[in-house]
Design a protein around this nucleic acid. Structure first.
Length: 433
RNA sequence: GGGGGGAUUCCAGAGCGGCCAAAUGGGGCAGACUGUAAAUCUGUUGGUUUAUACCUUCGGAGGUUCGAAUCCUCCUCCCCCCA
């Protein structure tokens, strides 16, 4: 498999240094992608880089995932990073392990593979480097003129066309040099000749190739991916509730599945190419099938299936499908009553829970008091009134249309809870205590 | 240093003594149509046990008035022009 070709047709190629393709044909090398260990989980924004490594490994080369323990402390001036917090070592190691576990779902780290994936942390070599040694051995080789010519730096300089530019600290300025040194280190230690990343990383990567050329007379390469966009201009990977994480504790498999199911038609094909390993013919097939019968949403279903299965499990995927059918098909009260615990949790884990006193249901309670005072699902009674009038509230999957009706114990599902739905997608659960 | 303009509900932006909880647009929410999409259309968008009612809101503090987002005084912040 030709790695560059592969990445190109998948729409994951923004820029590549001339000669990269030929170099990869000649020998088995390593390539790396940097990941900030700011949390103990990856989110789907990291997935492009991970998939680059995945295809790299599929092409017979060795992928290296670099945890930016050191660089993460400095803060990349590309984009509008703010001041970073220094991670303590314990957290850093913890995050590193958690991230490795997630990466292993995509990459093969097993010893027996002759191109096994490797995880490294630049903290391990940078922390021992003294300032004096660094500026003497590394800084000497790169001129300030070269460094300030980078877009990421130029944009931050006072007097640039960007009037909000606030200048940048020496710390941030030196970021590219530290990242450049990472590349040099991996070049020496792991025969790493290629660094990959988002298109905003181009400047930082080329500082690395430059450093390698000057210090080692070596030749190293760069390859970047376009930043993922959505057809409607929104930011990819974010929902109202925040990031979509790979960690099931942060984003439930059900929510994860739902995220992909909700992809728009315009984006689905693009995402299928980027985030799955399906080959070209297979994807083209799906696209034409989808065009035949758009309402079946083959692309979205496939996307959700592939991603949920890889990141979570086949079981988690199956459960999510059942849960979705239940919530978005014509779910009924009877179906709710027959939900088993696993499915129940899958469906409602990401949903707000409220506790209410069992007594208040004994004599029945009107919906306004119940949903604003007993369980603050809504912020005012007026809002509830409006929604009821507009047919916007369902109790236990049944439209609640009569504002005078009282809710009593008979409404409880399995004597334990009530399911409140606002509109089509927003659920709340009221448990009795 | 001198002169001028402005601060309005989530945002933009009307209103310039009572008919203002405040036009209009955007956004949000809901409904219809659908494919848990897009587009479109409709309703709704401060609070209060259902309201031709009351309460809280128009940068802050006072004042004038039967009555102020609207007039006056002081303060705070923003913008523009001249030096």
């Amino acid at each position: 498999m030709n790695f560059v070709e592969e990445v190109k047709w998948r729409g994951m190629l923004h820029d590549v240094m001339p000669g990269t393709e030929d170099m990869l044909k000649e020998e088995q090398v390593s390539a790396y992608v940097g990941i900030d260990p700011t949390a103990d989980s990856l989110h789907i924004g990291h997935l492009v880089g991970v998939m680059l490594l995945k295809h790299f490994q599929r092409a017979g080369h060795k992928p290296v995932a670099l945890i930016g323990g050191a660089t993460g402390m400095i803060g990349d001036p590309s984009g509008k990073s703010q001041e970073r917090n220094l991670l303590d070592l314990e957290t850093l190691r913890y995050n590193q392990e958690a991230i490795k576990k997630q990466l292993s779902k995509f990459l093969d780290f097993s010893e027996k593979s002759d191109n096994k994936a490797v995880l490294v942390n630049n903290y391990d070599w940078m922390s021992k480097f003294s300032f004096l040694d660094f500026i003497r051995d590394v800084g000497k080789h790169i001129s300030v003129n070269y460094m300030i010519a980078k877009d990421s730096v130029k944009k931050r300089m006072k007097g640039s066309e960007d009037k909000d530019a606030e200048g940048l600290s020496f710390t941030e300025f030196s970021y590219q040099l530290v990242q450049g040194y990472d590349f040099l280190h991996l070049y020496k230690e792991h025969n790493c000749k290629l660094q990959m990343g988002g298109s905003d990383q181009w400047g930082n990567i080329t500082t690395g190739t430059e450093l390698i050329r000057r210090m080692l007379k070596g030749k190293a390469y760069a390859l970047t991916s376009p930043l993922i966009t959505k057809a409607d201009g929104g930011k990819f990977g974010k929902t109202e509730t925040g990031n979509i994480w790979l960690d099931p504790k942060k984003t439930s498999p059900y929510e994860f599945y739902q995220f992909w199911i909700n992809t728009s038609d315009e984006d689905a094909e693009k995402y299928l190419k980027i985030f799955t390993v399906l080959d070209k013919a297979e994807i083209e097939n799906l696209v034409s099938e989808h065009k035949e019968a758009p309402h079946t949403r083959i692309l979205q279903n496939k996307l959700a299936e592939e991603l949920t299965s890889v990141v979570h499990s086949k079981d988690a995927y199956d459960t999510s499908v059942v849960a979705s059918k239940m919530l978005f098909g014509k779910g009924t009260k009877e179906q709710l009553e027959t939900l088993d615990d696993t499915t129940f949790n899958a469906v409602f884990s990401g949903v707000p829970h409220y506790e209410i006193n069992a007594n208040i249901l004994k004599n029945g309670i009107n919906i306004f008091d119940l949903l604003s005072e007993e369980a603050p699902v809504f912020k005012s009674k007026g809002e509830i009134r409006r929604l009821v009038k507009d047919n916007g509230i369902s109790v236990n999957m049944e439209k609640f249309t009569n504002p005078d009706a009282l809710i009593n114990s008979e409404y409880l599902i399995n004597d334990k809870y009530l399911v409140i739905r606002q509109g089509k997608k927003k659920y709340s659960i009221l448990f009795i205590k």
